[in-house]
């Protein structure tokens, strides 16, 4: 192993990938970078603006800075709420899925069903479902005396978006957890029965530790997706009422395409992107290091 051949020409093999990444990611990204350091007075004339867009964006006392900070906090709360519900719920569902027989297939298909629905369709389903006049959910809630209006009441809007996300994505957590549970050999359960362990103790001492790895993946996937959520709230609430459900993506689209405020939008895109990347990196590093420390 020590006398590995050392030949820098091997780098040529990487060139096709580099070229591909250049066209697929780097060049489109550079146009955004371009906008983020320039300003325009119209007529397609651009001039250098330095870091002014970024300074504004990161200063919460400015208009755009305040708006960005509010959307960021809103989005973090949303991700946290969604994770706190979907993770335990997904594990609970996975534990209830049968392990043998035809019921396995039936249960898995039913659980995976929401995952197969296009996101705009999910939004549309819930938009109609929540309507107070003809929607089953909205009409039913109001008829039993609960005040529910997702177009005017922020609490209703939030509840709708959260429940919709739980409906849409808990299945994925459940499927991951189910795969993890299936990988636990029967001997562990048999040993636990012989040791007289309670159901809770089996969960706490066998299932949960063995699920750790798939749960790291589940947390990562669910966090990223919920932090970048756009389609469903855009269809159901459009970010409203007011700014109540304007998460980062929604707000970004409003600024870029609604107000055609290219400089602010470009700066926001880049910062948003960096936040996502660094949060994922932190997550992953912390989780894998915890794992290693436990091992030794």
């Amino acid at each position: 192993m020590l006398d590995k051949p050392w030949n820098n020409r091997a780098w040529f093999f990487v060139i096709p990938v580099l070229v591909f990444v250049l066209f697929s990611s780097i060049i489109p990204m550079m146009t955004v970078v371009n906008y983020s350091v320039q300003d325009t007075m119209g007529q397609n004339n651009f001039f250098w603006n330095g870091a002014a867009w970024f300074q504004n964006l990161l200063d919460p006392t400015t208009d755009i800075g305040g708006r960005f900070a509010a959307a960021l906090v809103r989005n973090l709360i949303f991700s946290l709420v969604v994770l706190c519900i979907e993770l335990p719920l997904g594990i609970a569902v996975a534990i209830c899925i049968p392990r043998h027989g035809w019921r396995v297939g039936a249960a898995l298909v039913l659980i995976a069903l929401p995952l197969l629905i296009p996101w705009t369709v999910v939004g549309t389903i819930w938009q109609i479902f929540a309507r107070q006049d003809i929607g089953l959910l909205g009409a039913a809630l109001n008829s039993v005396g609960i005040h529910y209006n997702d177009t005017q009441d922020p609490t209703s809007a939030w509840a709708t978006i959260v429940v919709m996300d739980v409906w849409h994505w808990t299945g994925m957590v459940a499927l991951l957890a189910y795969a993890g549970l299936k990988a636990i050999p029967d001997a562990f359960y048999q040993a636990a029965r012989i040791d007289g362990a309670s159901r809770w103790s089996v969960f706490r001492n066998i299932e949960l530790p063995k699920l750790q790895k798939v749960l790291v993946i589940a947390v990562l996937l669910r966090f990223m997706e919920s932090f970048m959520i756009y389609t469903e709230p855009s269809v159901v609430t459009g970010g409203g009422p007011g700014e109540a459900t304007s998460f980062l993506s929604l707000d970004l689209v409003k600024i870029a395409l609604g107000q055609v405020d290219l400089g602010n939008a470009a700066a926001m895109s880049l910062v948003y992107n960096l936040i996502t990347l660094s949060l994922c990196w932190i997550f992953f590093t912390v989780m894998t290091q915890l794992e290693q420390r436990k091992g030794s």
Binding site: A187, Q190, A191, K210
Partner: peptide
């Protein structure tokens, strides 16, 4: 059992 069963 045949394979070690321990509580991790």
């Amino acid at each position: 059992f045949q394979f070690p069963v321990i509580y991790d």
